[in-house]
């Protein structure tokens, strides 16, 4: 069954996010830091008179906090709060049929918990990532 996916690049890896979980895609302005907040929370940003919590997507998935200034992000509303997941680049929006991961493919770090399958596009593959699994500190989150 095909579904609309948003394909983006995070930490050198293509990821696909189901478009039904995406509210918008934005260019982030200034990010206000949130000292002492959970790991991988970069801070707060304003988006059309709304506050979003900015999540270091790459850091969450790889365990190594990213250093560059966050620019683009995918916004998603999860459990009543808006989060902006920072991505390196946005590639495409297209219909894909998600496939399960081949058995034997072992994903490293938090990738394993957040990935539910993959989609293929012209020979390259993108991992299907569940954004709600990337939010620190909420129920159902698989990272800390």
């Amino acid at each position: 069954m095909s579904e609309l996916f948003l394909v983006a690049e995070v930490a050198g890896q293509s990821i696909a996010v189901a478009s039904r979980s995406v509210e918008s895609v934005v260019d982030l302005g200034e990010v206000t830091p949130t000292p002492l907040a959970a790991r991988h929370v970069l801070g707060l940003a304003t988006l059309r008179s709304r506050i979003v919590t900015v999540i270091d997507t790459a850091g969450t998935l790889t365990g190594t906090p990213s250093t560059g200034r966050p620019r683009r992000a995918i916004v998603s509303a999860i459990e009543g709060h808006h989060y902006a997941f920072v991505v390196d680049a946005l590639d495409d929006v297209a219909m894909f049929a998600a496939q399960p991961l081949e058995s034997g493919v072992a994903l490293a770090g938090a990738w394993a918990g957040a990935t539910s399958g993959l989609v293929e596009q012209g020979g390259t593959s993108a991992l299907v990532v569940d954004l709600s699994a990337l939010v620190p500190g909420i129920q159902g989150s698989r990272v800390n």
């Binding site: 206000t32 949130t34 002492l36 929370v41 008179s49 919590t53 620190p136 500190g137």
Partner: peptide, 24 residues
Amino acid sequence: AAPAVMSAGVYAGQALPDSGRPML
């Protein structure tokens, strides 16, 4: 604020003041 921010234990919430920059 989001649970990931509230978990710091030192914030009571977030607000958007006239400056447009989020404030805790």
